[in-house]
Write a protein that binds this DNA or RNA. Sequence first.
DNA 1: CAGATATGTTGACGTTGTTCACATCTGTTT
DNA 2: AAACAGATGTGAACAACGTCAACATATCTG
Lengths: 215, 215
Amino acid sequence: MRIAKSKRRTSYHHGDLAAALTSAALKLIARHGVEGFSIREAATLVGVSPSAAYRHFADKAGLLAAVAKQGFARLALEAQDAMSAARKRHRSAAAKAVAAFEAQGLAYVNFAVNNPEQFQAMFGRYGASSQQPVHNVCSTDQSPYELLKRVLDELMFTKVVTPAARKDAELLAWSTMHGLANIMLSHSFMNHDNVNVDQVTLGIVRRLLHGLRLD
Amino acid sequence: MRIAKSKRRTSYHHGDLAAALTSAALKLIARHGVEGFSIREAATLVGVSPSAAYRHFADKAGLLAAVAKQGFARLALEAQDAMSAARKRHRSAAAKAVAAFEAQGLAYVNFAVNNPEQFQAMFGRYGASSQQPVHNVCSTDQSPYELLKRVLDELMFTKVVTPAARKDAELLAWSTMHGLANIMLSHSFMNHDNVNVDQVTLGIVRRLLHGLRLD
DNA sequence: CAGATATGTTGACGTTGTTCACATCTGTTT
DNA sequence: AAACAGATGTGAACAACGTCAACATATCTG
């Protein structure tokens, strides 16, 4: 793993090393993958000695957790944008809810496909989330699971369902979306070279929606 | 990472180092996780010098791929056993198909929950499957995706559906099962301490089955 | 201005993946 | 049986890694 050239800086102190390191980490993760990432390379890229990183992060996992955190924030933002845009295209509350649900699924899968390595840092076993509880790495209002729960509520607000059935519906929807996202970027058991991600995703989301009818 | 004591052996040659190494790797992966696994520790555990491993595997990823391969074989076996047992409990072909589908889902999720690290080696980005095409690591008749396709065929053999709809159904089912398995072992966005894995899984599988109606 | 605190550097330790030259065993050919 | 070739294991080495302790320097607070 060749180490890239270092930037120079004039002052002894960096200014915002923590942010610079997470952003460098994001770049490097995108390049060599999460497992190929090294704290030393990130430090060198930022133009700082490797041990400087330890003033801002407990260890390698800590840095990766910061990358994951950033990812959750961005995903929540993108999903919410997509949802509110989708809602604007319809009049009735029911149609709005359906459109929002579809938009959320599309946003989720697209995020995974377009940022596979960050997605891996967010959900993978290596970097974050699974060694530590998710709350350390993702606030409640950015949790994709919470987001999905909310749009599901919107979708079923008229129906009267038992709490258990609601919980089942949540888990089913979350499983399907999470599974689809993982499959889309795993390059396993699929040849999605000639595949339109949006189209396939929308197909699955609609079928899921259809299956979610709680009757 | 402390290295365990080594076994002794009498002869210069080992006999079946490849198998011994994969089995040691499986043990160690179960202990420290995939990312904490080292080829040196496996070699030491088997009682052999680290470089000996390179006579049997190209590199670390190669060894992990072997572990993954073993996992696919075992999963296929368990799933098929569970399916044929389930089929025996019913008379009509339709009921058999439904029972087999349920059994397959249960087997899949249970395998993931009971062998989380091997599951990770099979599907994770680190060890295998994603750097190399799956065929290197899992033969067609052991592919969980193929298995699921077959049981889906059985399930829908009466219905006439377009190939596109069938493909959609396959992807939906595969996404849901794979997603559920991942969620079950991610300890994220769920507190499944007081959770009966079989019961929850069966609930999801039945709901999926319900959503799969191709009308 | 002075001390305290935050931040960055240097150098080191132990571990890792991997390779190369060498040793030893096994099987085949003469 | 002797000689050889191929397969398999060893030992020492290399560069890179995560992490830490001792030290240096900048910034903040009084």
